[in-house]
């Protein structure tokens, strides 16, 4: 069994090789890139499976059943999820998959409720309150710190941005006698302003993503330089 430092050294060399294999895609799609990505998918999916078993299924279902034995079989809070999980396994077979629909229905129902609850309490209410809060004339802008006329101007820009962006995503339109769907002029003009705000927002997000990924690229190149330097130094 190699010692820890030897394992670390081999691991670092492997990581360096994998980095070069992935970055070789910059030249063109090639077998080295594919080997690295398939290796990655294999390891990542195996690791995800192990995490799902050890962090969710074993402590939530298997361990309580093993500890309590037959007593556990009488507990509805344990036997129902066990049955649901077994029913879900039927989804693996096309001919038996209909027996797994009950489990999927429960999963979808709870998932939809979490999405609705999260959207209302996590986004709709806080964002609407924040938008209303900007209307307070005596408040100082929390991020930029400006007051007075400058703040009023900024608040107007923000509110116009929010409203016009929302109107851009409103796709209802009146049908003309010719059968053509057409928005009113006011809605179309506001939607165009909204499209401009969306372009600005995506531009800022694009710049943030580009800056973050360039940082990662620099880190990878620095890592490769260290691996090569360490290798040459023996």
């Amino acid at each position: 069994m190699p010692n820890a430092s030897a394992l670390d050294f081999m691991g670092t060399v492997a990581a360096g090789l994998l980095t070069v294999m992935v970055l070789s895609y910059l030249v063109r799609d090639n077998p080295l890139f594919r080997i690295a990505t398939y290796l990655f998918i294999g390891v990542a999916s195996g690791y995800a499976g192990a995490i799902a078993w050890h962090n969710v299924i074993r402590p939530g279902l298997v361990d309580p059943l093993m500890v309590r034995g037959f007593e556990g079989m009488k507990d509805v809070t344990l036997i129902v999820p066990l049955i649901l999980v077994v029913l879900l396994l039927f989804k693996l077979s096309p001919s038996l998959s209909r027996y797994g629909t009950l489990s999927v229905a429960l999963l979808v129902g709870v998932g939809a409720a979490v999405v609705v609850g999260g959207a209302i309490t996590g986004t709709l209410i806080p964002q609407s309150l924040a938008a209303m809060d900007t209307l307070n004339p005596s408040a100082v802008a929390p991020q930029t710190g400006e007051t007075g006329l400058e703040r009023v101007l900024n608040v107007v820009i923000m509110l116009v941005g929010t409203m016009s962006t929302l109107i851009y995503f409103r796709f209802t339109a009146r049908r003309e006698p010719t059968g053509e769907a057409r928005r009113s002029r006011l809605v179309a003009a506001t939607a165009a302003v909204g499209k401009g705000f969306i372009a600005i927002t995506f531009g800022a997000m694009y710049a943030g993503a580009l800056a973050a990924t360039i940082l990662v690229l620099v880190e990878r190149i620095q890592f490769l330089r260290e691996v090569v330097a360490g290798f040459l130094a023996g």
Partner: peptide
């Protein structure tokens, strides 16, 4: 200011869409 206004509109739009889709399932 500019991007935050647009981002708030996008976020509220996404949340409204998610709420409508979730309610259709429920």
């Amino acid at each position: 200011i500019w991007a935050a206004g647009g981002a708030r509109g996008i976020l509220i739009g996404v949340a409204l869409g998610a709420t409508a889709t979730g309610l259709r399932v429920l």
